[in-house]
Write a protein that binds this DNA or RNA. Structure first.
Ligand SMILES: Nc1ccn([C@H]2C[C@H](O)[C@@H](COP(=O)(O)OP(=O)(O)OP(=O)(O)O)O2)c(=O)n1
Ligand SMILES: [Mg+2]
Length: 495
DNA sequence: GCGGATCAC
DNA sequence: TATGGTGATCCGC
């Protein structure tokens, strides 16, 4: 894609610009500002639930999880850089006083149920995204009430606090994408209202970091940064380039970011497409050990199948994470549904066997191509679709990639290089493959990287300011001849 | 349909 | 000592 970019960047793209402008105009005109969408997100959820049972935890840095992995942390701990999905033992290096509390899922489920009961009062069709998070469409409720959106959401949050002693943050806006971002604006224990008006929305997005948009993760952020796109507003300046470089789906998603468009309706009860189970363990490589794992996982998966009343799946897949952390996925599709644990185990073992020899730290098994959901609703009713939502291609961000063959490249000729997946092409097409030994000015590690890799490394280092500041502080404070390995491993984690 | 990858939570 | 688990989507074959 970099190569494509180099080729395109100096071309005259007035034609593309005109075409894109027309599309933008179309989308802008179709904007739906009639709905009032609210995103509610509980604050430091698991940690806050733990603080209910032990209020002394509120005063100290605390995280929930184990030495292997933390699920979340309270806000005191976040000041030290302790976050979700961080190994506990590394978090302890950032914050030696950190107290780690084991997970208590039944408590989180109970708290979640209370919160959801409140959601249901204001929107019976609310859309839960996880135990601690949901979207509500408040349009109907507001039409029967004198309250302003802000007053109503304040009331909902008050009610949550009364019922659970837990605090929530909320965002109110014209669609899900915006409401989600707004809920983060005044977190914790706050709310933000973005008026359902075009001007307010355009002002809001113009300066908004693209990374705030759900669906734009670390990788996508970096790629867009390469194209000088840091905010949603930047998308307009680079619209022609983006049109040429991105797939139609990705480009459409970018325009939606620029315009602040998003879905307003909730596709409840969409069919599940796969069911899986995976486990991490200390390294295994002996075939007998691997096959024993297969049996354990097949048993778990079979139970889960029954619990969810799923007949089976036609596609059986495995996932192996090597001790190098490389991941391999393999799958095979059959003409009939697989469901018995013995059948699952047999097929999975065949798939595993082909990968031998391997040394792995994780094994996962998965069934997909599941049967269409059984409606326990009999009779002809089901033939009259309860179509609450006819949105085709609704909320599909993800996967920035090169456009297969843009309309223009068809005109301009020649089968250009087969466009590869974005990340692959960045690695492969990097114009200066010369690997150079350099020393990172931030983490002081010597690195053997090409130019692009080095820049990525710098980005990472700069993104982790909090972590590094604390690390350096610790290195200074502690006796000089100390764990070189500890500092290194922590930085490796943020590679 | 397959495999790699990204993303949310 | 120690770097999770589940499900979805997208891309290019
Ligand atoms: N990678 C992750 C992210 C989150 N969670 C769990 C723990 C969180 O408590 C819960 C909710 O996720 P959030 O992203 O909403 O994080 P918190 O609610 O903990 O914090 P906050 O919303 O205040 O930022 O999901 C997890 O297990 N693994
Ligand atoms: Mg939360």
């Amino acid at each position: 894609m970099i190569r494509q970019y180099d080729k395109i960047k100096d071309m005259d793209l007035s034609f593309e610009t005109k075409l894109v402008d027309h599309k933008i105009n179309e989308m802008d005109t179709g904007r739906d500002l009639t709905q009032c969408i609210c995103h509610v997100d509980m604050d430091a959820f698991y940690a806050s639930v733990e603080e209910l049972d032990d209020p002394s935890l509120k005063e100290i840095p605390m995280a929930v999880g184990g030495m292997h992995m933390l699920c979340t942390s309270n806000y005191k701990a976040r000041q030290f850089g302790v976050r979700s999905a961080m190994p506990g033992y590394l978090a302890l290096k950032l914050c030696p006083q950190l107290k780690i509390i084991p997970l208590h899922f039944p408590k989180y489920r109970a708290a979640s149920a209370k919160v959801r009961a409140i959601f249901a009062k204001y929107d019976p069709s609310f859309l839960p995204m996880s135990l601690d998070e949901a979207y509500l469409n408040l349009t109907n409720y507001l039409s029967t009430s004198e309250l302003t959106p802000e007053q109503l959401v304040q009331q909902i949050r008050d009610e949550i606090q009364q019922e659970t002693q837990l605090t929530a943050s909320a965002g109110i806006a014209a669609n899900r994408m915006l409401a989600k971002i707004c809920s983060d604006f005044n977190k914790p224990n706050g709310q933000y209202f973005l008026p359902m008006e075009r001007e307010a929305i355009m002002k809001f997005t113009s300066n908004l970091s693209i990374r705030k948009v759900s669906g734009v993760g670390r990788v996508t952020e970096r790629v867009l940064q390469t194209l000088d796109v840091k905010t949603c507003g930047d998308i307009l300046h680079r619209r022609a380039i983006l049109y040429r470089l991105l797939s139609p789906i990705s480009f459409q998603f970018m325009l939606k970011c620029y315009l602040g468009l998003g879905s307003t309706n909730f596709n409840l009860e969409s069919d599940r497409k796969s069911i899986s189970v995976e486990r991490t363990f200390s390294a295994l490589s002996k075939p007998d050990d691997l096959y024993r794992k297969v049996d354990e996982l097949a048993e778990l998966l079979a139970v889960d199948l029954g619990r969810n009343q799923i007949q089976g799946g036609k596609t059986v897949g495995i996932k192996l994470k090597l001790t190098s952390f490389d991941v391999r996925v393999r799958s095979k599709t059959y003409p009939s549904y697989i469901s018995k644990k013995e059948d699952i185990a047999r097929i999975v073992k065949e798939l595993v066997q082909k990968e031998l020899p391997v040394s792995i730290r994780l094994m996962g098994i998965r069934l997909s191509s599941l049967p269409p959901k059984v409606d326990d609703d009999h009779g002809v009713k089901k033939y009259f679709k309860k179509r609450k939502n006819t949105d085709a291609g609704e909320e599909q961000p993800r996967k920035i990639s090169t456009v297969p063959s843009s309309p223009v490249s068809v005109l301009t000729s020649t089968s250009v290089t087969p466009d590869t997946h974005l990340t692959a092409s960045i690695a492969a097409n990097e114009n200066a493959p010369s690997i150079v030994a350099v020393t990172c000015p931030i983490c002081s590690r010597s690195l053997a990287l090409d130019n692009h890799q080095f820049n990525q490394h710098l980005d990472e280092c700069l993104n982790k300011v909090t972590v590094k500041a604390i690390l350096q502080q610790q290195q200074q404070n502690q006796s000089p001849p100390q764990d070189q390995t500890q500092g290194r491993s922590l930085l490796d984690y943020y590679r």
